[in-house]
Amino acid sequence: MTYETQMAEESRLWKQSQLRRPSFLERSSKKAQTKMNQLIPEKVHTTITESIKKMVQATLIGSNVTTFPKKIENLTFEEREQLVEKTIGTFKKTAAIEGASTGAGGILLGLADFPLFLSIKMKFLFEVASIYGYSTKEYEERLFLLYVFQLAFSSEAHKEETLEKIEYWDSLKNEVKDLDWRVFQQEYRDYIDVVKLMQILPGIGAVVGGVANYHLVQQLGECAMNCYRLRIFSNRK
């Protein structure tokens, strides 16, 4: 079995795992978060959505400026993935240091962690796109990265639709003009709220911040690799 055949099967199994029925605990947690969100005034939701939208867009611009193309023209698919694995390792360490630093600083630095960690994750995704041979100068490729990000940090309710867009992106991208920013920010906040609340607690914030950021980048890395696999292999069918 070739490496690509093996990875095609691995990505298929990963896709199936993403489409599994949520557990009772996950369903209960999502219901509780939905009820909490319903109690928040609409003006607050609008303000948060716009704030995160601008924050992400600014991060995308910054990541595009600071991400340098790698010389990957002659690399095989397997060599590209080995480079992605190394990149995941580097960014996990960077994110862990950032999380531990802001977590140790209490509430104020804990709040600063949100944009800093977001920037790290976006830069990571730009690096991954470059390694797989996609130009993030194109709007469609930056939008693709946002869907990868959303898939990594969202509930099961939104995964099926997002997965379809990702797998068949090259045939659907002209139909997908923008992201639902309300869903994007709400799903992301719901996903990481508990961890980030623990990160600002005295005494344990540094440990929680470092460990959480390390594993969240690992999760994003696994998601990004499988999303690109699905996309690449779907074009070969």
Rank of each mutant, 00 (worst) to 15 (best):
H45E: 03
H45L: 00
H45F: 01
T47E: 09
T47D: 08
I48D: 03
I48P: 04
T49W: 02
E50Y: 08
E50S: 01
I52Y: 11
K53I: 02
K53C: 05
K53Q: 12
K54N: 15
K54V: 10
M55E: 06
M55A: 10
V56A: 04
V56F: 00
Q57A: 12
A58I: 13
T59I: 00
L60D: 07
L60G: 11
L60R: 07
I61T: 13
G62D: 07
S63K: 03
V65M: 07
T66Q: 13
F68T: 12
F68K: 12
K70C: 11
K71M: 12
E73W: 08
E73C: 09
N74C: 09
T76W: 05
E78T: 11
E79L: 05
R80T: 11
E81A: 09
V84A: 06
E85R: 13
E85Y: 08
K86R: 12
K86D: 08
T87E: 10
I88Y: 00
I88E: 04
G89V: 08
G89R: 12
G89P: 15
T90R: 13
F91A: 10
K92H: 04
T94L: 08
A95Q: 03
A95T: 04
A96D: 08
A96Y: 02
I97V: 15
E98T: 12
E98D: 11
E98K: 12
G99C: 05
A100F: 14
A100L: 09
A100Y: 07
S101V: 10
T102L: 02
T102I: 02
G103E: 00
G103K: 01
G105V: 01
G105I: 01
G105R: 02
L108E: 15
L108F: 10
L109V: 00
L109A: 08
G110D: 09
A112W: 01
A112Q: 09
A112N: 10
D113T: 02
F114R: 06
P115W: 01
P115Q: 04
P115G: 06
P115S: 05
L116T: 11
F117R: 00
L118V: 07
L118I: 11
I120V: 14
K121E: 14
K121V: 12
M122S: 10
F124R: 06
L125A: 05
F126P: 04
F126Q: 09
F126D: 04
F126M: 12
E127K: 14
V128R: 01
S130R: 09
S130I: 02
G133P: 01
S135F: 03
T136F: 00
T136A: 06
K137Q: 14
E138F: 04
E138H: 00
E138S: 09
E140D: 15
E140Q: 14
E140M: 10
E141Q: 14
R142A: 09
R142P: 01
R142D: 12
L143Y: 11
L143K: 11
L143Q: 11
F144T: 07
L145M: 12
L146E: 04
Y147T: 01
Y147M: 05
Y147N: 04
Y147V: 03
V148P: 03
F149K: 01
F149R: 03
F149Q: 03
Q150H: 13
L151V: 04
